[in-house]
Design a protein around this nucleic acid. Sequence first.
DNA 1: TTGACATATTGACAATTATCGATACAATCA
DNA 2: TGATTGTATCGATAATTGTCAATATGTCAA
Lengths: 109, 109
Amino acid sequence: MSIDPVLFAKALADDTRQEIMKHLCCVWLSVNDVVERLGGRINQPTVSHHLKKLEEANLVLVRQEGRNRFYTLNQQQLTACCGRLIHAFAPDLAPKVILPDDIETRRSE
Amino acid sequence: MSIDPVLFAKALADDTRQEIMKHLCCVWLSVNDVVERLGGRINQPTVSHHLKKLEEANLVLVRQEGRNRFYTLNQQQLTACCGRLIHAFAPDLAPKVILPDDIETRRSE
DNA sequence: TTGACATATTGACAATTATCGATACAATCA
DNA sequence: TGATTGTATCGATAATTGTCAATATGTCAA
């Protein structure tokens, strides 16, 4: 349940996607909820496309309910990926970084 | 001396760039050193292009010496950006994350 | 000054990807 | 059943970006 650091970065490397992520933080939203919160600037198929990207990076949790699909940010995965980046690219600082016990910073795969 | 999270993610969102970053970790290398370590798969202009991207994201430190330019990873910046991502997108876990004192996780600018 | 070397820049091209409209699919409701 | 609603998928297009060859720029040495 781990992920390639490049795939992680690519998932974050878009303005619209980071805006969607802000809206999905600590909240479960349906696809249309997200479309609404974006103020109609982005169409539903595009939002679906972005959610798929986030799902592929395991950055969202998904719950199907009837004909609705609810999404929320996967905070564990985001924290783990950041931890992994620090371990890979900031090894001098990594020993001073403390993450929650249940966050695995090494590739588990 | 802070940076937009999207620009940070974009800087990391490429295989070649992350490979370059690995080589620049804890070591000062000239542009040609980097080209060499990539095994000749990537040409010098392309490497220069990637280094520029990393420099724009403040992810490398640069030292000019004669006709050589030496680069190394900016571990502080990388750690700070990761901290900022966690604060933005994993607020429930962020309180349990401890970073070195000199790392600023809030946008200073 | 001339030549050699290290790096950056430019222009072109190919690959990736964000976006949209149209449509398909699935679940609910009348 | 048929109509409606929520979401995903498809095909097309435009924008972004990674890559290269060629060249420019800047620095050092003879």
